[in-house]
Design a protein around this nucleic acid. Structure first.
Length: 840
DNA sequence: AGTGCAACTCTTTTT
DNA sequence: GAGTTGCACT
């Protein structure tokens, strides 16, 4: 639109494409927003514009993102443009799903106080149902089940093979589902799948929902999976070729999705790039706006990013142009090993600060979390403050999870996973046998406990022996006291706290909702009122803190958690552990108590507290504002930017992995693209010649991605081993040539055992020879029987074939063998007597 | 039932 | 290297 009118200030600074995206309305809109193109600004401004200029009720606007952080930022920024936007529903996909299910719990067959199982809980649940599968097998199966749910597949879906290769898994999936439904809880996949099921199966809910949400915005759309697409389609009431065309008297909602196909990096979690690639076909009449002006990086950095991603096929096509011309080319440093890489990174941080910058200007990026370790060791030594994003999660700690499990059990006595976790914690003499008996009793239809383990425990306690019996009684009395404190059951000798369930319909006198002999009541399974969806969304902990909210009245949830820590004996137990092991467990317990003080002391407060934690597990105690270097995985950097970025470990075998090919390889390339485009001013890339993986040393080559960059767009810094300086400072093109040949080798590493060092321009003959006792690499390689493709025989496993060979510094080659049985194993032929090569 | 030791698997990436 | 599992012993 031409600037022929005077724009209100909040629109005036937008560029023409951004303005067009903001002021678009009507048909579906796809905004292709390149990295750093002001995407969040466009979405938030668009929300404000719809409310202000187009008269939309903020509550009729639904905006979904993929991370809690993005949702928070979007909420804050929209509200700062237009205060009424605070009433819009701006959430992550999963948090929206939870919100929706709580309001339609009965129809979905759930407890309204359901909790959300993480992958660990899922594995525990499955292991309980099918003990013949080992615990770690259960973890893997459960991952596949999650994947199936991402694809929107049910146990009886015909194309379930998309998630499982083993047909026996169909039954396992079905059993898992049955067991999960018995707990009344959900897993992450359910948060998407169940709302979609409700919407497609229940016309009243569908109508109500569509009447409410007239605008649907999706951020990071390239990361959506099949189930999320389904949900979007049902919410919108459009884009359904065929079946979605129901006869509701509600026109389709206005749908606007924003994304960047080049930044799709969650395929492993079920994300479908196809969703964004084919959006225009799935939502007929779609209009596309491209945001290609990058306000973040120098052109020199974008050039590199562009080179890399141009090697992918199947893109919508987009070229980022920097508003900041020029800049120094990114620098590639080929280093000897991880220690040198660590020191290299430290030096970059130190130099930045010496030059007047801040620690916080620098981010160190890596592919896997394990790589953070060497930085964590070295940085404190050198006095470099750092912050690790994503790892070391507070809520994953043993002691914290124990307390959370107790809390979940208070809300829902059918929570088998929580029950098993805490019934004997600290040790009360209740062994596995007793626990299994109690679970069986709870699920036995004849006994009528309806899966409620607390009720079953109370009834069965007498059938246990000695210590188990008294221990269980003890446990039950702790639980009972806490339930009373929450107002879930009438407190003995106190005023009926049950009536303080604020804001909810009064609990019906329906006898079926009251099961436990100790008087525990389950949440009422009553129908939801028509306008249930009118509730404004609950605030999360950060919002609460910011608003200085403290629960009024009769104390906070913190009191309950504190009492739980004391009564259960866990606090005392952990104090003891801390003394023995020098840990901080008791302090973590305090921390959790502290977090809970922001919530009211009620069943609702507790459910909200748990949900916040379950959905935002990255939440650290306090977003520290201290100036510190950021240590972060490449995945976690999406949406962030830093003046200085060091992307480490750009090595073949690590990034990409040797077995990455096809779609997966393209995804890794996109991940590299994301990493590169985080840098505003300065970008460094590092690759080590020796890399320690699983505590073992491997010789590596620079990543094949590096040779995809035109040599003149990178600056090369040599190996610099022992501070010897750069390798051949002249002729970048020549070095690029060497690198290219390295890349070729890298792609076929298995066929060139011991020949890896050729990729390192700075390596020099001396250093290389010293590390290869066998003399010239080529010769040694030809003499060796350990080559990929070689047939072998193993005393225990039979015959197989070598699929990969990795040189190591001291142990000779490491060979990976796939046996005819399908088993895969690695050996050091130097040490193993059981493996021998077969003559072809 | 709980402890201690040896062996084994695993690694991407996260809502 | 780490975390977990399985087994034997107390």
């Amino acid at each position: 639109m031409p600037g022929d009118e005077s724009l209100p200030p909040y629109l005036a600074s937008l560029n023409p494409e951004q303005l067009a995206a903001v002021r678009h309305e009507g048909r579906p809109l796809l905004i292709l927003a390149g990295a750093g193109s002001g995407k969040t600004r466009v979405i938030t401004t668009k929300i404000a514009w719809l409310v202000r200029e187009r008269g939309y009720d903020p509550e009729s606007i639904l905006a979904v993102t993929f991370t809690n952080k993005a949702a928070r930022e979007m909420r804050d920024r929209a509200a700062s443009l237009e205060p009424a936007c605070a009433r819009a529903v701006i959430r992550t996909f999963h948090s929206f799903g939870a919100w929706f299910l709580r309001r339609n719990a009965a129809a979905a067959g759930l407890d309204s106080n359901f909790t959300i199982y993480d992958d660990d809980d899922q594995a525990t649940l499955l292991h309980g149902a099918l003990p013949q599968y080992a615990r770690n097998e259960c973890s893997r199966i459960v991952q596949s089940i999650a994947r199936a749910k991402d694809f929107g597949l049910e146990p009886d879906s015909p194309d379930l093979s998309r998630a499982f290769s083993d047909p026996a898994m169909r039954r396992v999936y079905a059993i898992y589902e049955e067991r999960l439904r018995a707990t009344g809880n959900v897993d992450f996949g359910d948060l998407i799948r169940l709302p979609a099921k409700l919407l497609s199966g229940d016309e009243a809910i569908r109508r109500r929902t569509r009447q409410r949400f007239r605008v649907i915005l999706v951020d990071e759309y390239q990361d959506s999976n099949v189930a999320q697409f389904e949900l979007l389609r049902l919410l919108a009431g459009a884009g359904a070729p065929g079946e979605g065309g129901d006869r509701l008297p509600v026109p389709p909602a206005y749908v606007c999705v924003v994304g960047d196909d080049d930044q799709s990096i969650y395929r492993f979690r079920g994300a479908e790039v196809k969703n964004i690639l084919s959006f225009p076909e799935l939502f007929p009449g779609t209009e596309i706006v491209r945001l290609e002006r990058n306000y973040r990086s120098y052109q020199s950095i974008l050039d590199v990013a562009g080179d890399v991603v141009s090697h992918n096929e199947g893109r919508l096509g987009k070229e980022l142009r920097a508003e900041r011309r020029g800049g120094r080319p990114p620098r590639l440093s080929l280093l000897e090993d991880q220690d040198e890489e660590t020191r290299f990174c430290a030096r970059i941080c130190e130099e930045r600060v010496k030059a007047g910058g801040k620690w916080g200007d620098v981010a160190i990026l890596y592919r896997t979390n394990a790589q953070s370790l060497s930085f964590e060791k070295e940085f404190p030594r050198r006095g470099i403050p750092y912050r690790i994003v994503g790892a070391l999660r507070f809520y994953d700690r043993e002691e914290v999870k124990d307390l959370l499990a107790y809390l979940a059990l208070l809300l829902n006595g059918k929570d088998e996973v929580a029950f098993k976790r805490v019934v004997n914690k600290p040790s009360r003499g209740i062994g596995e046998t007793s626990v299994e008996a109690l679970c069986a009793a709870a699920l036995d239809p004849e006994l009528g406990h309806g899966g409620d383990l607390l009720s079953a425990s109370a009834a069965e306690a007498d059938n246990l022996r000695g210590r188990a019996k008294s221990g269980l009684r003890e446990f039950l009395s702790v639980v009972k006291g806490l339930r009373a404190a929450l107002g879930l059951i009438a407190a003995p000798g106190a005023e009926a706290a049950a009536s303080t369930r604020a804001g909810d319909e009064p609990a019906p006198p329906d006898a079926s909702t009251s099961a436990s002999p100790d008087g525990a009541t389950r949440a009422p399974a009553s129908a939801q009122p028509e306008d249930a969806l009118r509730d404004s969304p609950p605030l999360d902990a950060r919002d609460r803190k910011k608003a200085g909210m403290k629960p009024q009245g009769e104390g906070s949830l913190g009191d309950v958690v504190e009492r739980l820590a004391r009564d259960s004996g866990l606090l005392e137990y952990h104090r003891g552990q801390d003394e023995v092991a020098g840990t901080q467990k008791a302090a973590n317990v305090d921390e959790l108590v502290n977090a809970a003080t922001l919530y009211p002391r009620s069943a609702e407060g507790l459910a909200e507290f748990l949900e916040t934690i379950e959905l935002d597990r990255s939440l650290t105690a306090e977003e520290s504002t201290a100036d510190a270097v950021t240590l972060i995985t490449m995945h976690n950097t999406k949406g962030l930017e830093f003046p200085v970025v060091v992307a480490t470990g750009i090595e073949q075998g690590l990034f990409p992995r040797d077995d990455d090919e096809g779609e997966e390889l393209e995804e890794q390339r996109r991940l590299f693209y994301v990493a590169i485009t985080r840098a505003k001013d300065e970008l460094h890339l590092t690759a080590c010649r020796w890399r320690r993986i699983h505590g073992r040393l491997f010789e590596t080559l620079p990543s094949r991605f590096l040779k995809e960059i035109a040599p003149d767009k990178l600056e090369f810094a040599g190996a610099g081993a022992g501070g010897q300086g750069r390798a051949g400072g002249s002729g970048l093109a020549a070095q690029g040539g060497q690198l290219s040949s390295a890349g070729r080798l890298g792609g076929r590493q298995g066929a060139h055992p011991g020949g890896g060092a050729g990729g390192y321009p700075g390596g020099g003959a001396g250093a290389g020879a010293a590390r290869r006792p066998g003399g010239p690499a080529g010769k040694a390689a030809e003499a060796s029987p350990w080559r990929a493709g070689q047939a072998v025989y193993h005393e225990d496993y039979g015959s197989g074939v070598i699929i990969k060979v990795q040189p190591t510094p001291n142990s000779g080659p490491l060979v990976v063998v796939r046996f005819e049985t399908g088993k895969q194993a690695q050996f050091f032929p130097k040490f193993s007597t059981k493996l021998e090569p077969l003559r072809g």
